[in-house]
Design a protein around this nucleic acid. Structure first.
Length: 563
RNA sequence: GCCCCGGUAGCUCAGCUGGAUAGAGCAGCGGACUUCUAAUCCGCAGGUCGGAGGUUCGAAUCCUCCCCGGGGCGCCA
């Protein structure tokens, strides 16, 4: 049908010509005039033996996904935690989707480098360092400090400095009403003092003052210890090796700004230094009036390191959609500077943006008091709900296995819910929905795998073993549907990877599980009396399980044996 | 004001670079457990694809305008 436009003929006429000349007798049923349908489709039915041959070709250790001869290097930016802050829902998607995107590229055979851009530098961190040192001076043992404590300190520090702005806003609003003024004066003074101490501390940190750096390192270790543990619990591959703090770029920033300045790429604007990007009204700010550097400056350093040092052929940022403008500016500026080029090749810089996590009220997910929800709490809730279900449905299992299953089910529920809708869209976080065993959920898919596994357990009891080379007999419609669905796997993974869209793999594994259900319902595996059919069906079961497990693992969702 | 992203069944969502009668799940209704699966399966019902134009043999899909919702917009990150 796309030919119709190019050739200038009617689709059905072209279809008729194709049918007339098409010879696919070796793999398909005869194609005739009657095979033409609708506006010009030519229906081709694969012969069972040809279909079996295609499935045979899929049945390799890599399940039909060939590795490229000369694999590109892809950098995936994900996770992005901040010092002295717990991981919260804001990090969930970046971590889960980012890891899935990285896994997709790995599955396709690319060389993948994960990079978690850790917010570990700047005035906010200096404020926490300052507070921590004050606490230490008051006699508190730093060894006992947890991330929870740091989080409280961070908030307190933020609040103190915020007082300054709040007070200022009040004065503006009430026009310096005498009543307000007296009270506010004290707050402003307090805030100013705190901000001043933080600024002094920042200078100490930047110049390598030993006690200051020691406190900073303590904060770094506590934060990363807790956050990397959460990543591990999420079955997301984000480790210390993948973490690159903003601090690691600090010596490069003056150099980058100077480079852009001397090459005439950056220009002065209202005392600040900016890079203009074609097609965007807003400029990209790289240096403040006071000489300080900005978010974009660090990202430029990040791009340069990733492309020129790591030799990335492609850089993907799995970051919140709200950062869209920022990345367009940073990418544009990096491109003007040539930071996205290595060995005469320009690496595409891409923002794989994702939407927000909403509560059931349709507003951004928060606690009742308006606080960010800690990711650990979210995971714990999902796992404990899963544990209750496992205890109810399968009380016979040993307690430790039940706990392992609950962990897998709870994590799978959250991850699948996050991965299965289009990345760019917001989604509503609902425990009941994501933990359901009916429908398009993580637990359902784990159960699909378990059901297949149980067939093999049963088969073993009967002394029936899998013959991995048994000839495939694909005569039943459900067998054909299952086989055809299996064959789509390599293309789905490829398409999902190229578009950074893990949800396509989710849709696929769900389709495959559905196709298997139909097969399982109507095609008895162990109950038949035909040995050849049983061997063929066992092989289909095995292949289906391998594809399901591979697909889920590519999404970063581990499976279980029983549940 | 300018820019970006969404709007598909009561609810939550798919729909690949335009292609057949727009598909799932949940909820609703009706069936199926001395089982290889009930943490499941099968069936029924349910839609002006936000609206209006346009391009095309053909539009949920591409273009333009409008409506609704969300987000962003130079010295925070």
């Amino acid at each position: 049908m796309p030919l119709a436009k190019r050739v200038g003929a009617k689709p059905r006429e072209i279809a008729a010509k194709i049918v007339e000349h098409l010879d696919v007798a070796d793999i398909a049923m005869p194609v005739t005039e009657a095979s033409i349908a609708g506006p010009g489709f030519v229906n081709v039915s694969l012969r069972p033996d040809a279909l079996a041959a295609f499935v045979d070709r899929l049945d390799t250790p890599e399940l039909g996904i060939a590795r490229p001869v000369d694999p590109d290097t892809v950098v995936v930016d994900l996770c992005g935690v901040n010092l002295a802050k717990q991981m919260h829902v804001g990090h969930l998607r970046s971590t889960v989707i980012g890891d899935a995107v990285a896994r997709l590229f790995e599955r396709l055979g690319y060389k993948v480098i994960r990079q978690s851009h850790v917010g570990d530098w700047g005035l906010p961190i200096a404020m926490v360092v300052q507070k921590l040192i004050e606490i230490e001076e008051a006699g508190v043992d730093l060894a006992s400090i947890t991330l929870d404590d740091l989080n409280k300190i961070y908030k307190a520090a933020q609040a103190t400095c915020k007082d300054e702005r709040v007070a200022l806003a009040s004065v503006l609003k009430y026009g310096g009403h005498p009543k307000a003024e007296a009270e506010l004066e004290g707050r402003i003074e307090h805030a100013n003092e705190a901000a001043e101490r933080a600024r002094t501390r920042l200078v100490a940190l930047q110049s390598g003052d030993e006690p200051t750096v020691a406190a900073w390192e303590r904060i770094y270790d506590i934060t990363m210890g807790a956050c990397l543990a959460t990543c591990a619990r999420l079955h997301a591959t984000v480790t210390a090796d993948h973490s690159a703090g903003e601090s690691t770029y600090r010596t490069e920033l003056p150099e980058i700004v100077k480079d852009l300045e001397t090459r005439g790429i950056a220009e002065e604007s209202d005392g600040a230094l900016v890079v203009r990007v074609e097609g965007i009204a807003e400029p990209c700010l790289i240096r403040k009036k006071d000489g300080g550097f900005l978010y974009a400056t660090t990202d430029l350093a990040g791009i340069r390191r990733r492309v020129q040092e790591f030799k990335a052929d492609r850089v993907v940022y799995v970051v919140d959609a709200r950062q869209s403008l920022h990345f367009r500016l940073a990418f544009g500026a990096a491109h003007r500077a040539g930071y996205d080029v290595h060995d005469d090749r320009t690496a595409p810089l891409e923002h794989a943006a994702f939407g927000m996590v909403l509560g059931e009220d349709g507003r951004p997910l928060k606690t009742r008091s308006g606080e960010n929800i800690k990711l650990d709490d979210l995971l714990e809730e999902a796992v404990s709900r899963a544990a209750a279900t496992v205890a109810e449905k399968n009380p016979g299992l040993p307690a430790d296995e039940r706990a392992r299953i609950a962990e897998a089910v709870g994590i799978a529920a959250i991850k699948y819910a996050d991965l299965s809708t289009e990345r760019i869209k917001d989604y509503v976080f609902e425990f009941d929905r994501m933990l359901a065993f009916e429908g398009d959920t993580g637990p359902y898919l784990l159960n699909a795998v378990v059901r297949i596994t149980s067939i093999f357990r049963k088969a073993a009891e009967q002394g029936v073993t899998l013959d991995e080379r048994a000839p495939l007999v694909l005569n039943e419609p459900d067998e054909r549907t299952l086989a055809l669905t299996l064959l789509k796997y390599p293309m789905v993974v490829r398409a999902a990877g190229e578009a950074f869209e893990p949800h396509r793999v989710c849709n696929y594994v769900y389709d495959l599980a559905s196709a298997f259900s139909g097969f399982y319902e109507r095609c008895p595996v162990l109950h038949g009396d035909d040995d050849a059919v049983r061997a063929s069906r066992l092989r289909l079961c095995s292949l289906t399980r391998r594809v399901l497990v591979d697909g889920l693992e590519t999404l970063g969702i581990p499976t279980v044996e029983r549940m």
